[in-house]
Amino acid sequence: MVIAIGFEGSANKIGIGIIRDGEVLANVRKTYITPPGSGFLPKETAEHHRNQVLGLIREALDVSKIYPNEIDVVCYTKGPGMAPPLLAVAIVARTIAQLWNKPILGVNHCIGHIEMGRLITGAQNPTVLYVSGGNTQVIAYSNKRYRIFGETIDIAIGNCLDRFARVIKISNDPSPGYNIEQLAKKGKKYYTLPYAVKGMDVSFSGILSEIGRKALPQKATKKRKLDQEDVNELPSHEDLCYSLQETIFAMLVEITERAMAHCGSNEVLIVGGVGCNERLQEMMGIMCEERGAKLFATDERFCIDNGIMIAHAGYEMFRTGTRMKWNDATITQRFRTDEVEINWEVGKV
């Protein structure tokens, strides 16, 4: 029996989770929310995490009814992410590991998402769509690695959504993506946006510029002339959110399907914060149904960044023999999904 505690703080969420052989004992989280029209900045986010982390450790121990001496390994997010918040959380993880005299393990954030998704849904060897504020990747396992088949060539899908939310100044509480989803449900009119699929890759930056121009034509660059349509009627926020979601989600489903055809896979797992969007899940579900595949998705507890996924991926590493020297217990902003060697069994390959 292995009990692992996990610390996550790569972006604006700080989460702590405790897991015992795949059984979730505690999963607590706090989110740093900024006013409408603004995003989270590294320094302020780190400060938020520093202020919350000790209270969350107490809460996680209380919820799980676990004593520190029962814990076998302390896991934390090594990367990828924003450096200041990563560092703030890593320092706490190192300190308590020293205090409690436990081994420490740095975990790849993306692997955390994938392994937690597999644990919760029971997906065996899925094609994974990983969609969040900082990542957009289509991943499949082969030969000891989670390999990236398709990804964004510029900004992440969540970044596109967050930045559009800032353009139209909607609330960041509980998350900009959630509020866009609610507005989109009331949208009716579809405005044509660029559709950018390149092989198995996608691009969102041009779409973000275009929808920004549609939302605020008066702010459009002087170089570009306004269409007559732009001047006559200002699109409603509802219609813009609807058009944006329909376009970018269609792109995601398309590249996921291409990857499935490429790998001969019949399972899809959606992970990452954008993965709890119900319209995205619905569209992916239709695609899967049409090709006789199965869709696996989780809810906000496990989709959105959390500590339990770090604990679980760390548990898989720990039980298959991975150990980390204190000198290696650092952080890194750049840490690609395919850099990690997977020593545990994934599906029947």
Partner: peptide, 13 residues
């Protein structure tokens, strides 16, 4: 440049 953009991108989890 396109390739470097790809490698640089994994900034936020």
């Amino acid at each position: 440049e396109v390739r470097a953009r790809g490698r640089k991108r994994t900034m936020i989890g």
